[in-house]
Amino acid sequence: MKKSLVLFGLLILGTASAQEKLVPVKLQLKWFPQAQFAGFFVAQEKGFFKAEGLDVQLLPIGDQSPIQTVATGAADFGTTWITDLLTARQQGLPMVHIAQVFQKSGYTLVALKSKNIKSVADFKGKKLGVWPSGNEYPAVALLKNNKLTSSLDANAARPDVQAVTYPFDPSLVFPDKVDLVSAMTYNELNQIQGLGYSLDKLQVFRMADLGVNLLEDLMFTSERVLNDKNFKNSGMSGREVAARLVRASLKGWDYAVKNQAEAVNIVLPKCGNTCKGSGNRADAKGHQTWQMTEIAKLYNAGPTLKGQAGYLDPGTYKNNVKLLRDLGILKADPVAAAVDYSVWEAATGKKAQR
């Protein structure tokens, strides 16, 4: 009996010791908890992070910038869009791209078919609902590519399109205050349907199909973290921690996409009041199921289909930089250090074609 108690006590101590060795990591999400981040929640729930020796805390942020929390050290890693990352570098914040989760843009502009807006040329004279804080760039790029000006351009005396900035809830402006509204395929597009407008009544303009495939959800960190020789006194370098985080995250994403119903059930207890999406009348599970289905399409594209999940295709990256330079958002090409392929290589065991 005493021997059994001793063994039990050693087992408990051994487990506690193993838990203490987990390296604490804070990953800043770009929005509130939802299926948009399913792969990370699955990696957490399934123990993929722990298997890499990491204790990962997933931090929600809402409509603030994940760049700031990583820049200040309040978070170690984050998810954001390529435009946010590159404009931050331009402003002197040493942020580094380490993995590309979504390979295709989910950004759309939506109008009622009854408005008879059938092409981008028909946007002229219309009101367009856009999001603030840099989230309007895809819409601006689409307009400029089609030689249309907007009120977002201070130099446009008589803009072709009047932009109306709104805080992410389409019900605040659509369809009474704007003719077209910004909507992610996985979120607001479903919310608009929840407002009583079925897909057959909607004209959906998908940015990725119109030459504006500005990449969205990616993983990033700071040069400070990558160059840390002893991350949080763990005995591991920041670069090694980054590779472990990317490896576990991609495993989580692969599982989530292949097991979408299970992934949704993992997300639901974590998203609370945001499960339905702002302005959406559908049930929470229905909205998250829609979101997971659409997110899977953004993940399962480009390099992912070639067995290179998380890889930033150099050609796509080059096109994104050119588009942002043409818009005047970037004044020069980003420094090479803005993207670190070595983290992805260490995480996957594959060689990047730079």
Rank of each mutant, 00 (worst) to 15 (best):
F8H: 08
L10E: 10
G39R: 01
F40S: 13
K46C: 04
G47N: 03
F49C: 08
V56Y: 06
I67V: 13
Q68F: 11
T69H: 10
G78T: 07
T87E: 11
L93N: 11
M95T: 11
I98G: 02
Q100F: 05
L109P: 04
A111W: 08
N116E: 15
I117A: 08
K118V: 12
A139L: 09
L142S: 03
L142E: 07
L143Q: 01
N146W: 10
K147G: 03
P167K: 03
F174T: 03
S182F: 06
N190G: 15
L210P: 02
M219F: 13
F220G: 02
F220N: 00
T221N: 08
S222R: 01
R224S: 13
S237Q: 00
A243I: 08
A243P: 00
R247W: 02
Q260G: 11
T274E: 15
S278V: 12
R281H: 15
T289V: 04
T289F: 04
W290I: 00
K297Q: 12
P303S: 04
G307V: 04
Q308I: 06
D313F: 02
G315W: 00
R325M: 15
L330I: 05
K331I: 00
A332K: 14
A347Q: 08
K350A: 08
A352G: 04
Q353S: 15
Q353V: 14
